[in-house]
């Protein structure tokens, strides 16, 4: 598998008044064609900011450093017009809230067709046939009716499937899905998972899936990155990490699941404007030592994965 995306030392911060919010610090990873990488972490850990940075959807006041290379092109330095052409065509994006991603004033058919008309030379009739095909693949038996619907006439789960149809209709090489199952109930989540599984089986597409739902991550991911306070703390093969987490935060996160006894991690995540010195997780870590409080750990290889922890490296 060849490399599609290469992110090196990506940092994103926002200055608000006298405060600097360091949303993402020094994140590096790559992504191969056909690979599914899941970024997991709690609210505010910076995972959505990474998705927005790759898609070029960060607000203008964001301070970005580092490299985001897509097919050897540095996405930071290409002109905006080129980036707009990539988005929707080569890079598909599914955002968290489908109701906000869809325009309430246009029908579903119009909105999905717009992607095709914007990026290809296809006629309206041909586009309509493509939209109908995409909706049929998405499990809608009568696409003609769905195409005439407005977003308010459909449930959240249906709207999310429309957004996925729209983002994948041109078979992008990279699909970025930011919390595609948040706010949906279990059976709708199942519909979205099934759709992703179909995409993974039938289409040649690399996927970056951002979620805080560990069950969804486990079902879909080839590789997983666990994020805490703007940093990746553990990254590697998803099955191996779920079987045997190394980083104390990953262990705590998995232990918080109801099926594992709901053992909470003490304390709360630090505000991104007041990052602690040393290891960012040390105030909540039961195994911290003096070195954890003093030195910031680097992301280093242990066995089959990358881990950012002094203790794991010293064992």
């Amino acid at each position: 598998m060849s490399r599609l995306l290469d992110i090196k030392n990506l940092s994103v911060s926002f200055v608000s008044g006298e405060e600097t919010v360091r949303a993402v610090t020094d994140v590096s990873f790559d992504l191969c064609e056909d690979e599914v990488l899941t970024l997991v972490g709690e609210t505010g850990c910076g995972k959505s900011i990474i998705a927005h940075a790759i898609s070029g959807l960060l607000p203008p006041e964001a301070l970005v450093s580092g490299e985001i290379r897509y097919k050897e092109k540095d996405l930071q330095s290409i002109p905006e017009e080129e980036r707009v052409l990539l988005r929707g065509c080569e890079i598909g994006i599914v955002l968290q809230n489908p109701s906000r991603a869809l325009n309430p004033l246009y029908t579903i058919g119009h909105q999905i067709r717009e992607t095709i008309l914007r990026h290809t030379e296809k006629s309206k009739e041909e586009s309509n046939r493509m939209v109908a095909g995409a909706l049929r693949r998405m499990g809608f038996s009568d696409p003609g009716i769905e195409m005439k619907r407005y977003p308010f006439e459909s449930s959240g789960g249906m709207n999310q499937r429309f957004v996925i149809a729209s983002s994948t209709i041109l078979s992008p090489d990279l699909l970025i899905a930011d919390e595609p199952t948040t706010g949906l109930d279990r059976s709708r989540i199942q519909d979205v998972i099934t759709e992703f599984e179909r995409i993974m089986e039938e289409e040649e597409m690399a996927i970056i899936l951002i979620t805080h739902d560990l069950a969804v991550a486990r079902r879909l991911a080839d590789r997983i990155g666990i994020m805490y306070a703007g940093e990746v703390v553990e990254m590697g093969d998803a099955n191996r990490i779920f079987e045997e987490p190394y980083h104390p935060y990953t262990k705590g996160l998995f232990g918080s699941l109801p099926e594992n006894g709901c053992v909470p991690i003490p304390g709360v995540s630090p505000p991104m404007s007041r990052i602690v010195s040393g290891c960012r997780f040390h105030p909540r870590c039961g195994k911290r030592t003096a070195v954890c409080e003093r030195d910031h750990p680097q992301l280093g290889m242990i066995d089959d994965r990358y881990v950012r922890c002094h203790l794991c490296h010293s064992q």
């Binding site: 709690e42 609210t43 918080s256 709901c262 053992v263 909470p264 991690i265």
Partner: peptide, 11 residues
């Protein structure tokens, strides 16, 4: 809520 916060509230 996130899972770790959910665990705190449930406990």
């Amino acid at each position: 809520l996130d899972v770790s916060v959910q665990a705190q509230i449930l406990q």
